[in-house]
Design a protein around this nucleic acid. Structure first.
Lengths: 333, 333
DNA sequence: CTGAAAGCGCTAACAT
DNA sequence: ATGTTAGCGCTTTCAG
């Protein structure tokens, strides 16, 4: 019974029909005369009947819930991603069960266990690197899943996202083309994110285009970026540009510059990654890379539902991300 | 059956015990000899048995999932709130099902329907104002629920949060005490949030302490705050302080001032609401009101679980919120 | 301490 | 087009 105690049987009794017929109409059923359909719908409304999801799930082996595990929700990009997933899933009649892993493989595994234990029909994971136990579990239980926020053509697993290494490479190229020869890359904790590692690796691969290409690891927040850049501002290598692997870090860079009396982009250039809402509104507007957080969420949700409903194979997909040129990078040529 | 097809019956067969006994040990059961308990646990591990949540829910009428509907996840305060709920719920063996209402009563109602239709055991709502249909539904279905982000001693319903009106009043008092006589209150869309309305009402109630107390409504983002304050900067009333109902708006105010060449706090003072992470790191550090987003999430989750597990009545609770004095407000005395 | 058995509410063959 | 019926996997009396 549902909370107010009305079950499909009550509706059947009320209408003088069988439970099977009720079930048919409630499920957008086929093969029901328009007349009975109306009768049933009316009775459902009158009795305020709500199908019991557990019973339905038990019978169909489908919960219509998909689970997502993200490293954090307190970062705009993930918040947008999750919001998009929720919205698209909802439009398809699915719900989202969410868990936060704090970028920790062990927590991620525990979360996956819990979510699957809640009956999730599929799993959305962030990034490419996951504990073997998790991967084993997914295989053994044959759970549909997709990796996100990254794209790897060579992966045998479905990855929907962008090529972090390539993007970092492009960002650096953007700087190089504008005459920057000494640049500092400021990024978050490498241990916590394969996407950060990929960006760093991508940046490193084009190191030969620069006189100096330095890497700094900072806590992934405004304070982290600020402290890191403030220190780097005194570096004898005299960087002309700071590539921040996240807009939040870039905001920290802005405040570090303000404090040190350095003008952007006159004295130093700053470039971000994410294209957060405010990046266009700060002074000067930030040149950054637009990551398709919302589009990615929509696509992931769509693909998972397509798989669940129609068996459409889950496969990798690269999403477009492009540089948004604004005023924070000087042209030194 | 769960995904890999092992059910409680398989474990029973494997151990030569009955399903009842398996159920007992799996559920931290009582009345099982230590020996059988071990046998069972072993068999469970060996077979990789995971209880089917739907079957369990059908039998117990409990899903161990609680639902939360928030207006947006793309605002730090809500992100923190949700993160805390998820964490605390998880620690108690519960899961979070989330939906986003976009601050729309109709969407909220639809979301509630969906989440309850997914079998949520309880509902967490944001704010005090909700559609009558929603309220009716909660009553009729006897769904446990709590309103959050606000606290209202007079409400008959459980509200866990803070007194938004009082907080705005205090913020204004803070400004008044420092000699500000002409202040502008910049807030988000009134139509979307009863908390915004409460803050405005609270501010209005102490209008007589000021020579000018003006109210401006802006879109709730950096761009909104920036545009609004930029215009207000030219107001003939020459406000000496801007009280922003959100730190995000305050950040916009900072950029508006930067653009207009106004120095904070020398030329104008700015005060926020939220105490977001970066408010301490911006230049100058922002005076704001610390809202207990995380503590609120923890408490809400705890209380709901306490109700679900032990029947502890849900009741209202006021959480402490205090002014964080930093450098963005000048003392004019 | 353990087992048998009756559901929980719904869906999906299979009949009619 | 509609009805009958057998489960789905688990919990929970009630016996023993």
């Amino acid at each position: 019974m549902n909370r107010i105690g009305v079950s499909i049987r009550d509706v059947a009794r009320e209408t003088g029909l069988s439970t099977a017929t009720i079930s048919r109409v409630v499920n957008g059923g086929s093969k029901v005369s328009e007349k009975t359909r109306q009768t049933v719908l009316e009775a459902c409304a009158r009795l305020d009947y709500l199908p019991n999801p557990a019973a339905r799930a038990l019978s169909t082996r489908r919960s219509k819930a998909v689970a997502a595990i993200i490293p954090t929700i307190e970062h705009s990009v993930f918040a947008k991603f999750i919001a998009a997933i929720e919205r698209t899933l909802g439009a398809r009649g699915y719900s989202l069960i969410m868990a936060i892993s704090n970028a920790d493989e062990v927590e991620e595994l525990a979360a996956a266990r819990k979510l699957l234990g809640m009956g999730a029909d599929a799993l959305i994971l962030s990034g490419l690197d996951h504990s073997d136990l998790l991967l084993d579990m997914l295989e053994r239980r044959a759970v549909p899943y997709v990796f996100t926020s990254a794209w790897d053509a060579r992966s045998a697993r479905p990855t929907i996202g962008y090529d972090n290494a390539l993007l970092a490479e492009r960002a650096l190229a953007h700087l190089a083309e504008r005459g920057h020869r000494r640049v500092a890359v400021v990024h978050g904790p490498l241990a916590e994110s394969d996407r950060t590692r990929a960006r760093r690796a991508g940046a490193m691969s084009v190191g030969d285009r620069f006189e100096h290409l330095a890497f700094f690891e900072a806590p992934l927040d405004v304070a982290g970026g600020k402290a890191c850049v403030r220190a780097a501002l005194d570096d004898p290598r005299e960087f002309t540009a700071y590539l921040c692997s996240t807009d939040v870090l870039a905001l920290g860079a802005y405040f570090a510059c303000a404090q040190a009396g350095k003008r952007i982009p006159l004295d130093v250039s700053v470039m971000g990654f994410d294209n957060l809402d405010w990046s266009r509104d700060i002074e000067p507007p930030l040149t950054t890379i637009d990551l398709p957080a919302t589009g990615m969420g929509d696509m992931v949700a769509e693909r998972i539902v397509a798989y669940l409903e129609d068996g459409v194979d889950l496969r990798s997909e690269e999403l477009p991300a492009r540089i948004i040129e604004r005023a924070s990078v000087a042209d030194l040529r």
